[in-house]
Write a protein that binds this DNA or RNA. Structure first.
Lengths: 153, 153
DNA sequence: CTGTTTGCAAAGGCTTTGCATGAAA
DNA sequence: TTTCATGCAAAGCCTTTGCAAACAG
């Protein structure tokens, strides 16, 4: 993505968030702006602690409580998606313009690789028909070792 | 399963657990016997709290700490499997003689339905080959509403 | 007896929340 | 000025752990 597109995307995200804030009678605060900016400068999946660390490193101190509250707003607004990576804490990823996908999670280094497949979607339809189940969402993740991390012997 | 088979199965499980205890120089205690018995009298998926409740109801008081510790032993011995059902706490299911399967989880009532499919296994092989990833385990779950629980409008 | 196991209560990790202060509208 | 947001610290939820007393072998 070129630098111009990146800026355009960031502008779009800010627009979407501010529109959400407006519709819900929420205020545009310094803290929300800082978190939004930082969140969309991250490429990978991230958790609360790493976001806090990045903000502190940039001397943009925001409390943990505000981060939790703002990540909830960002998720509700559709800008972020909360994902379960088989660990005990919450991870987040960017949502805009990204189709649903599955995750490969490295047990060694924690690296997350995304992949998509229509097979899963078809399978979900079949299974749900069989059990008369109304699907809302699904998660499929493969945990193992990435190329760089050899399995322990 | 007939009553006789049920008793036979329980005996087999007890045997497997006691053998595990012996191999690891762990002791056969009243508490471990009570937990083992209760765990294998449960048909569905269960969590720590419901197990504790069932034991108390039967006037078999065992502390939460001991339940946590014993469930770990049961899992390590291969008698139980810990599963992630998209909730914040740990759930367990019986492991002996049961092949890997996936879960349908009802968001309404919490009911869990198991299903198996070779499609997922094949898919895992393909995806892992593509990314040069050594799989250890996978989870696939569909969250939605079961027949009895209508989706909220 | 000796080393485990138990139960209790405290603590740990992550997340939420009550409340007073401070900022947005 | 009014209402909402923030930061702090406390609390909540689930799980783990240190320790003294109880128990298995």
């Amino acid at each position: 993505m070129s630098r111009n597109n990146k800026i355009a995307a960031e502008t779009a995200e800010r627009g979407q968030f501010y529109s959400y804030l407006g519709q819900h009678k929420l205020r545009r605060t310094q803290e929300r702006a800082l978190i939004l900016q930082e969140v969309f400068s991250i490429q990978d999946h991230f958790d609360v602690e790493s976001l806090l660390f990045r903000l502190r490193r940039k001397h943009h101190p925001v409390s943990r409580a505000t981060i939790y509250r703002t990540l909830k707003h960002l998720t509700d607004s559709g800008l972020l998606r909360q994902v379960d990576l088989g660990r005990s804490r919450a991870f987040f990823e960017h949502a805009p313009g990204r189709q649903h996908h599955e995750h490969l999670v490295c047990i060694g280094c924690g690296k997350v690789v995304e992949f998509s497949t229509v097979t899963i979607e078809k399978l979900q339809t079949l299974v749900c028909e069989e059990f008369n189940f109304k699907p809302v969402r699904h998660t499929y993740q493969i945990l193992g070792y990435c190329e760089a991390c050899q399995p322990p012997s």
